[in-house]
Design a binder for these strands. Structure first.
Length: 425
RNA sequence: GGAGGGGUGCCGGAGUGGUUGAACGGGACGGUCUCGAAAACCGUUGUGCGUGAAAGCGUACCGAGGGUUCGAAUCCCUCCCCCUCCGCCA
């Protein structure tokens, strides 16, 4: 969320940030509303001062057994005006918050401008896509032929956009998740967290999914929401906290299921398990000082890339353009893995620096050393990486002519030494 | 689900409806003392918003939201959370 004081000081910069996001200028409207709100607040506070002083005087008078009825009557008369002033102040404040909480974060200066993903810029790539001397297949063809991937069973249970994995494939999926978690906790310095998968409105507001993107989420009959990513519980761990500077950076990771309604993606990626209502993901979250967040983003995307390096998967790393970055992000790197079956790179990780955008929404602050005041932290999140999509990548990149799948070296310790997944399951 | 008990500052813990942003204790920080340390003593120790160049001033906040009152941490209502016991349960 934008800082209203910053908008007051630099309305042109605010409008310029909106413009990069493809939005019309709003500073004039916002500042007019802000002025009215502050006037309402001042008016209210003036009355409160008056009331407090009068109440004190009444207390004094009563203690001395003097008559205070005149003053009391005066204050009683003030009451309606105060109620109205309170209501006006509250109303204007809510209006302003409604506007601000629906505006996306400002992109960092180095983020390339562009209308959509075609303006994303490739930073680097790793490994040449493997050349097959046979016709390579897509993951669902491989999985179904092996009898280990079952979309019909999933449809019976849950409908479209779900999958059932069996046998060695289910184990490979589990192995991938364990491997990633071990890598991040033992080599990358992240602390493992097992968070709740159901969260309150406030948590989703904090990370920016609410109020604007409710339709992308699943909500329970009890009013809790299924998390669309572990970014939500992990980042909100610092909500309403004031953290000591020495404790930063905070690095946490979690393996969780993620639930997404995929409301706006009808017809896209309908085959296979690339886009599901439920998938597992290992998430990375860092909480840093404003000075450190830029470096932390580089470090984080490095951690995500490292997963793919260890697995021997070809990928490329992209800087997203202003037209493609998410609501809360100031800058985002996508890591795209090569999928031979699709003959394309597909997103497998997305790492974002959210600056103080989320911190401001969730009041997450830290106290700089030797400083009495507080500052908002910076928050970053990234997939490290999406487990389901990574399984697809392993299947397609490690497929063999007979339809079997070689187990990448790094995963064999998690598979009891198994080297190949073949038709016998 | 049933029955009780609670939610106050960094922590513990007070608080007859009136100068309580909050006693007291602990912790932390600064200082005195000391060759140094401990002890002792003195002092400091919340967050947001508004206003101001700043110092400051004002205002709100004692789980959340309403209400009563000239005035609410204190009274009333609703909700949330935590704890104990019983039931159920992985």
């Amino acid at each position: 969320m934008f800082d209203i004081r910053w908008i007051r000081e630099e309305p042109e910069a605010f409008d310029a940030a909106l413009k990069r996001r493809g939005l019309d200028p709003l500073s004039a409207d916002v500042l007019a509303l802000d002025t009215r709100r502050r006037e309402a607040q001042t008016a209210l506070q003036t009355m409160q001062t008056l009331r407090n002083e009068a109440s004190k005087a009444i207390g004094d008078a009563k203690r001395k057994d003097e008559d205070a009825s005149e003053l009391m009557a005066e204050m009683a008369a003030l009451k309606d005006k105060m109620t109205a002033a309170e209501e006006a102040e509250r109303q204007l404040g809510a209006e302003l918050l409604d506007i601000l909480s629906c505006l996306p974060n400002a992109p960092l200066p180095e983020v390339p401008d562009g209308a959509d993903e075609t303006a994303n810029v490739c930073l680097r790539s790793h490994l040449e896509p493997r050349q097959f001397d046979f016709a390579s297949k897509e993951h669902y063809e491989l999985g179904e032929a092996l009898g280990l991937l079952d979309f019909e069973a999933a449809a019976k249970l849950s409908g479209a956009r779900f999958a059932v994995m069996r046998g060695k494939l289910a184990r490979l999926h589990r192995a991938l998740a364990q491997f990633m978690l071990d890598l991040h906790t033992t080599e990358h310095g992240y602390t493992e967290v097992a968070p709740p998968f159901l969260v309150r409105d406030e948590a989703l507001y904090g990370t920016g999914q609410l109020p604007k993107f409710a339709e992308d989420l699943f909500r329970t009959t009890h009013g809790l929401w299924l998390i669309p990513t572990a970014e939500v519980p992990l980042t909100n761990l610092v909500a309403d906290e004031i953290i000591a500077a020495e404790a930063l950076p905070l690095r946490v990771t979690a393996l969780t299921p993620c639930f997404r309604s995929e409301a706006g993606s009808a017809g896209r990626d309908t085959r296979g398990m690339l886009r599901q209502h439920q998938f597992e993901k290992v998430e990375l979250v860092s909480i840093t000082t404003p000075e450190e967040s830029a470096d932390e983003l580089e470090r984080m995307v490095g951690c995500a890339e490292n997963v793919l390096k260890r697995l021997g998967l070809p990928y490329r790393t992209m800087v997203l353009s202003t037209g493609d970055i998410g609501f809360a992000a100031a800058k985002t790197y996508d890591v795209e893995v090569w999928l031979p079956g699709q003959d394309a790179y597909r997103e497998i990780s997305s790492c974002s620096n959210c600056g103080d955008f989320q911190a401001r929404r969730m009041r997450a602050r830290y106290r700089p050393e030797g400083d009495k005041s507080t500052r908002f932290v910076h928050s970053l999140n990234g997939s490290g990486v999406a487990v389901g999509r990574c399984l697809i990548a392993v299947m397609e990149n490690y497929q063999q002519a007979d339809g079997s799948i070689e187990v990448p070296e790094a995963l064999r310790p998690y598979m009891a030494g198994l080297e190949v997944i073949a038709a016998d399951g």
